[in-house]
Simulated scan of single mutants.
Amino acid sequence: MTMSSSMFQAPRADLPDVAHQSVPLARELQWVGMDNIALPVRIADGAGGTLQVPAAIDMAVNLGNPDARGIHMSRLYLRLQDGLASEAITPAGLRHLLQDCIVSQDGLASRARLNIRYDALLQRPALQSGFSGWKRYPVEIEAVLADGHLRLSLGLEVEYSSTCPASAALSRQANAERFVQDFDAVQPLSSDAVVDWLASERGMAATPHAQRSRAQVRVELKPQFDELPLLALVDALEAALATPVQTAVKREDEQAFARLNAENLMFCEDAARRVAAVLADDPHVTRYEATVSHFESLHPHDAVARISGENP
């Protein structure tokens, strides 16, 4: 994220600048800047390349001089625009950008903060058919540089399917009761008759309820790593939850998805523990918090579990 010197020319001396006027109620301000700046950013695509995607960005510095009326806001914007234009987002690049924003304030600031929100598009393979499709993952990156120390946080969302264990147990009981009803008097009972019954509509007396669900994760990253572990986190979380929502789906993929749901019955509490186990074992993560939400198909409200922790 290098800065082009031609982008930042000296201001015209004959233009008025009210920022240097006297300050009523003088005091320091913790943060001053801009929210929801619309800019394109470059991100890794998960396949060794980069993608350019639209982002919403908050940028701020502290105003440490109580007698200064305001910061040089246009300098922040220009450095942000130039710094994010050509290179994929990395911890080193964010550190350089934040330091440059501090320097741009000519002694008014000693800290800088940046928040970047965008949708990562990752291509994900189907379960069986060999097809693949693009899936959207909302991402939020927060970077704060203070006293030479970079604090970096990564937030992301993963969607998955959750099938209720209680509903599954009740459905199995209903299926068993119907089996007894249909075959109690049948003697002898052949395996072919059972297979035909199971494949018929009579063989499904009830089905468990399932719903689209979401895991929202925020992690504070250790400073020694050179890349944002977005893809690694997505892969680990989807593997742990086992039923991530699909993109390109043929019949064999849909059947495989149904099997995975049956093998991974989950209350929201179960899902939260699976997510926490991933984050607690991740070498990139120093602190984490997660919220899992199951958007109930049985109830008009959501089932939600939250968990947080710190890693050594």
Rank of each mutant, 00 (worst) to 15 (best):
Val195Lys: 12
Asp226Thr: 06
Asp182Arg: 15
Pro208His: 03
Arg178Cys: 07
Val234Glu: 01
Pro244Tyr: 10
Arg172Ile: 00
Gly203Thr: 03
Asp235Leu: 07
Gln211Asn: 11
Gly203Met: 04
Phe183Val: 05
Asp182Thr: 07
Val194Ile: 15
Val245Met: 08
Ala215Val: 06
Ala205Leu: 11
Val195Met: 13
Thr243Phe: 13
Ala174Lys: 03
Leu189His: 08
Gln181Val: 02
Ala248Ile: 01
Arg251His: 12
Arg218Ala: 11
Val194Pro: 04
Pro208Phe: 02
Val180Trp: 11
Asp196Cys: 15
Ala206His: 03
Ala242Val: 06
Ala232Thr: 02
Ser191Pro: 00
Asp226Gln: 13
Pro208Leu: 04
Pro208Gln: 03
Arg218Lys: 14
Leu230Tyr: 01
Thr243Met: 13
Phe225Ile: 00
Glu227Tyr: 03
Gln187Asp: 14
Asn175Trp: 00
Asp235Gln: 10
Leu231Met: 03
Glu238Ser: 12
Arg178Phe: 11
Arg212Glu: 09
Leu221Ala: 06
Asp196Asn: 15
Thr207Arg: 05
Gln224Asn: 09
Leu231Tyr: 02
Phe225Tyr: 13
Arg178Leu: 12
Asp184Asn: 15
Leu228Ile: 06
Arg202Asp: 14
Ala215Trp: 04
Leu228Phe: 02
Ala205Gly: 11
Val186Lys: 15
Gln246Tyr: 00
Arg172Trp: 01
Thr247Arg: 04
Val186Leu: 14
Asn175Cys: 06
Asp182Val: 12
Phe225Val: 01
Pro229Ser: 10
Val186Pro: 13
Val180Glu: 12
Ser191Cys: 08
Arg178Asp: 04
Gln246Leu: 07
Leu231Trp: 01
Ala193Leu: 15
Val195Cys: 10
Gln187Glu: 14
Ser191Arg: 09
Lys250Thr: 12
Arg214Leu: 15
Ala242Ile: 09
Ala206Met: 09
Gln211Ser: 15
Ala242Cys: 11
Leu237Cys: 10
Leu233Tyr: 05
Leu233Ile: 02
Glu177Trp: 08
Val186Ser: 14
Gln181Thr: 12
Ser200Ala: 15
Leu241Trp: 13
Leu237Arg: 04
Leu221Gly: 05
Gly203His: 04
Arg178Pro: 06
Ala240Trp: 08
Gln187Ser: 15
Gln246Gly: 04
Val245Asp: 02
Arg172Gly: 10
Pro223Ile: 02
Thr243Tyr: 07
Ala232Phe: 04
Glu201Val: 14
Pro229His: 11
Gln224Tyr: 02
Lys250Cys: 11
Glu238Gly: 06
Ala232Ile: 01
Asp235Phe: 04
Lys250Phe: 13
Asp182Trp: 12
Ala210Lys: 01
Leu198Phe: 10
Ala205Val: 11
Gln187Thr: 09
Pro223Tyr: 03
Trp197Thr: 09
Pro244Gln: 11
Arg202Val: 05
Leu231Lys: 06
Asp235Arg: 13
Gln173Gly: 03
Asp182Lys: 14
Ala239Val: 01
Arg178Glu: 09
Leu198Met: 11
Ala206Phe: 05
Lys222Leu: 10
Pro188Phe: 14
Ala240Ile: 02
Pro223Thr: 05
Ala176Gly: 00
Ala210Glu: 00
Gln224Arg: 12
Leu228Asp: 00
Gln211Thr: 05
Val234Pro: 04
Arg251Ala: 12
Pro244Ala: 11
Gln216Asn: 01
Ala210Pro: 00
Arg212Gln: 08
Ala239Asp: 12
Arg218Gln: 11
Ala240Met: 09
His209Ser: 05
Leu237Ile: 07
Ala199Pro: 08
Asn175Met: 02
Arg212Asn: 10
